[in-house]
Design a protein around this nucleic acid. Structure first.
Lengths: 336, 336
DNA sequence: CTGTTAGCGCGTTCAA
DNA sequence: TTGAACGCGCTAACAG
């Protein structure tokens, strides 16, 4: 194989067309008017040489590269996937690309990863549910423009797009309460997770609103195996009177249901179970899982909308929280 | 708010330290030896100014930007997620980032998306299961260095990393055959998908090896709903004698099982069902789904390994196909 | 070991 | 309307 032929530059085109680089640049960007004859000639040369402008050079001149970065703790989480997909599609429709940085749950790397990613991109989307709040605040001020996803950050100069977990849990407790449940077990998410803290606040508010309801907290996690492993603790709670379970998310709920089935526990006969996020699988589980639906793609789209105005020099728009919607299915039933 | 202060440049650092830009550059890259005194002074200035080099300028001068792009048809597919995650982690360990481009199943956009992504990145990973082969061949030659994922492309100058679907299906048929099944229904994937074609080849080879086995093909898809919707056709096949089902992938299998359960069909009592990919949920389904396990993360890592040697000017390494491993679970049982 | 110079490819003044 | 010249920020070649 011969040497890889160097891609043609704007200078090549200019020479080929017998005009100046400036003219080529002008027909390329169409910002100024140029003689139709030149336009035509330049276009011909561009086609002939198969020229396409260098994004790197453009970036250097413009100081931006039409790319944003999204930092996530785990790409395998259906929630982040959905958000990423929505973000990617929305950004693409405005000519922006998305760089993803998976921190592989290593909280200590999140900061440097974010800063590094931000340097090569025009803006940042931060999903860092476990980063200590103070550190996050510092980080956010360093990497603006940035949007924070799925965690509260009071009085910070940053747009936030997220889910109203507090309200979601309350609505879910209402649902269970209406079914007659008075003793509920909550299987937690990762202990340091902000969205878990939010859910716990929801639990607190719910018990405040329903003094006749008590909620026991059981340690869990965020994945299928975590739910599976939480079964024993859940059964202990049941023996202590619990008739229903709220899991941190659907994966935990699904894993839990699997183990309960193995143990011969009937759902919802012996125990009602509800999840959160309404992942695609929820509606296909056995029994179909009751869950709080979260508009993943729409979250991504909203994130982009906010980032876009930020990039354009616009204001920091208000926090937007989506209220989860109850999807009542088979896994929750009346207490008996 | 005042004006956003412009980030400091290498010139600022040079001035602050009272040395030339070249010296700053040298201490930055550590390629040449520099007087310790200067090193120290420059580092101090860098810290004082909070300087960090511009990736754009570096890209322009080096002709690369330490970023690769991955083009996928659907970010929500667990298979691509796993590959993306493995790729992202492996690339990150070598200082490379990953840009993702979701073509949202729009086959017609794949080509331009890929070319566009390639221009801003040093290399490309192509997941385009439905792109017509000839178009893919042309594309591949345009965007090198590139690695193609999960589809054969005989005699093309491109490394391929994928799954041996043919062998996987054969092994799966062997499994069912050993259980006594002689009439099997195969629920297809997307018609134009390359990996579906591979599976069909596997079916053909399997029936060749087992003349006593017959396989009926039933139209399906790639997602949960597709499997759900295929139930009627599958039942028709059962009425025609089929005792087992192989689904295009786990999602289809899971969707199918859900519908069958609604219809009162016992799995595996009335019908054995097997999927493909071994997604995390497979082992948690009811009943636990028999599947062919595919090393998603490892595929991503292998893709990176090949891309890396390509970027370094190395040879086009040989195709590597992972042989799926049977995960026999509850959803397949002996014919009765 | 250090500073000066010359690009990398493009956009954008500024005159003509 | 066009072209020449400069600068974006950095690295590499060349002197000193």
């Amino acid at each position: 194989m011969g040497e890889r032929s160097r891609a043609s530059t704007i200078a090549d085109v200019a020479a080929h067309a017998g005009v100046s680089q400036a003219s080529v640049s002008r027909v390329l960007n169409g910002k100024q008017s140029v003689d139709p004859v030149i336009v035509h000639r330049v276009q011909a040369s561009i086609a002939a040489l198969g020229y396409s402008p260098s994004p790197a050079a453009r970036s250097l001149v413009h100081g931006r590269n039409d790319t944003i970065a999204m930092v996530v703790p785990d790409l395998e989480n259906p929630l982040f996937q959905g958000i990423l997909k929505g973000l990617s599609l929305a950004a693409a429709s405005d000519g922006y690309r998305v760089l993803v940085a998976d921190t592989a749950e290593r909280v200590d790397d999140e900061e440097s990863t974010a800063v590094e990613a931000r340097q090569r991109c025009d803006a940042l989307v931060l999903c860092a549910p476990r980063m200590p709040e103070q550190r996050l605040r510092r980080l956010v001020s360093r990497v603006a423009p940035v949007v924070v996803v799925n965690r509260p950050l009071p009085d910070a100069d940053v747009p936030i797009v997220g889910v109203d977990y507090v309200r979601g849990i309350r609505d879910l407790v209402d649902h269970l309460h209406a079914l007659g449940h008075r003793s509920i077990a909550y299987v937690t998410g990762p202990v340091s997770s902000a969205s878990n803290a939010e859910r716990l606040r929801g639990v607190a508010e719910a018990t405040g609103a329903h003094p006749d309801v008590r909620v026991d907290v059981v340690p869990g996690g965020s994945r299928l195996d975590d739910g599976y492993a939480a079964a024993d603790a859940v059964l202990a709670a049941r023996d202590a009177g619990a008739t229903a379970v709220i899991a941190f998310n659907d994966l935990v709920a699904l894993g839990l249901m699997t183990r309960l089935r193995e143990l011969g526990v009937d759902v919802p006969g012996d125990l009602s179970i509800a999840g959160f996020d309404d992942v695609p699988m929820a509606g296909f589980a056995t029994p179909r899982l009751t869950s709080m639906s979260v508009p993943r793609g729409e979250i991504g789209a909203q994130v982009w909308a906010r980032l876009r105005t930020l990039i354009a020099g616009g204001p920091i728009e208000h926090t937007v929280l989506f209220r989860p919607r109850l999807e009542a299915r088979e896994s929750t039933g009346p207490v008996r």
